[in-house]
Design a protein around this nucleic acid. Structure first.
Lengths: 219, 219
DNA sequence: TCCTGGATAATTTGATCAAATTTCTTGCCG
DNA sequence: CGGCAAGAAATTTGATCAAATTATCCAGGA
């Protein structure tokens, strides 16, 4: 049941669960995804699982292998370049649009989410970090009220998701600037361009980490 | 069977057919899309139709109506703004990337496609125009070999598709510049930036037409 | 190396159940 | 007496499942 007392259909729940598995690093790149394997794991029938897989394939989160198998895509140099370019095009714009509608309450929520991010980093908690980081970015983007751009951003994150688990290892050790803090500072000052720039640099930083891991043959 | 001798599954064929119906103006904005209605029309079982609908919903080509029905989305000012911005961000970049890999053979094919576009315009043939125009843009973009950006572009075109049928009426009458011709000129000269700019203006021109129709309450 | 079963998994169908919409009825009020 | 509205039945449509079908892969043998 959802908040309106309506029953949420099984295929929606199944989709959300599988999506989160991809987004938050439960599924490794290259891992095969079978319908029958997931019916057991997600406790659903074939039809809902099937639909979830198809939806995620349409969003680029899973790749069909020609011979009617589906797997979690491997990250490649070429794909990373495209992801980086597209994210740098879309997400700073979402941040810019969001700026106009930010309320003090929202900024407080974003601050709390950033605290969660830092706590997770401190604790070396990968799943917690990925969740909090995703929540930080998307509650900000949500404020832009631009569903078309949001869908694109979500698809781009889904494509990047499985690779991020391998980046975590390298990342307590680095003295990188905290760009979420800079973003929050810009929000409080109402500076749209500074916010947009901070988000852009945050994206760039993440992409650089993945690129580094990729060049070291981590995948 | 496809070119490798493999059988194409029904749900792929069904998806392609329904997608083209949306892309090429067969389905009107606001029109409800029912599974059982399509099983008859597309000559397929429930499951393939169901999957096609889900995939297209995930791509933004169809919208769920809350009460588990699905329909072709209405165009709004807000969505058009986002579509315009995103298309102007993505597609000129695809054109730029494509430039480096264009061969004389490809340019010849694109020239032929543009002839088709103009012939369809001359004949007032809406379906032919939409098909040829789509083919022109996407065979160009295909050359960029950037599947991530291609998927985004495809999704954006799907969202715009149903609205384009209503724009055709107004458009023999206008002395608009032929931007495909300019694009082809840039390709022949190997000028990436000029190509990118021509594509951008082509997009802008199309968006302006839709915006005009929208402001006149055509939807 | 090529061919031939056999195993595994995806595809598809048809049936069944549940939800939502529409239609029809019925009773009340003007 | 006529119209309107509320509620109930019927119809339409979506969701889910399980069985039957079909394709692909892999191993073993010619």
């Amino acid at each position: 049941m959802d908040e309106d007392g309506r029953k949420i259909p099984t295929h929606e729940v199944t989709y959300a669960r599988l999506r989160d598995m991809i987004l938050f690093g439960v599924l490794a790149p290259g891992q095969p995804v079978t319908i029958q394997g997931l019916t057991a794991e997600l406790d659903a029938g074939m039809t809902p699982v099937r639909e979830a897989i198809r939806r995620l394939t349409a969003e680029g989160a899973l790749t069909p292998q020609g011979n009617r198998r589906v797997s979690v895509p491997q990250m490649t140099e070429a794909v990373l370049d495209q992801l980086a370019w597209a994210r740098l095009a879309i997400e700073p714009q979402l941040a810019r649009l969001a700026m106009r509608r930010l309320t003090p309450g929202l900024i407080a929520r974003l601050t709390a989410l950033d605290d969660e991010v830092n706590a997770a980093i401190g604790a070396g908690n990968l799943a917690g970090y990925l969740r909090a980081n995703h929540a930080f970015h998307f509650t900000l983007y949500e404020a832009a009220e631009a569903p078309v751009l949001m869908d694109i951003a979500q698809s781009l994150w889904l494509r990047a998701g499985p690779s991020l688990r391998l980046v975590m290892g390298r990342f307590g050790s680095s003295g990188l600037p905290d760009l979420h803090a800079e973003a929050l500072e810009a929000m409080r000052g109402g500076e749209g361009e500074a916010l947009s720039a901070a988000i852009a640099r945050d994206i760039q930083q993440g992409v650089d980490q993945v690129r580094l891991a990729l060049s070291e043959g981590a995948f």
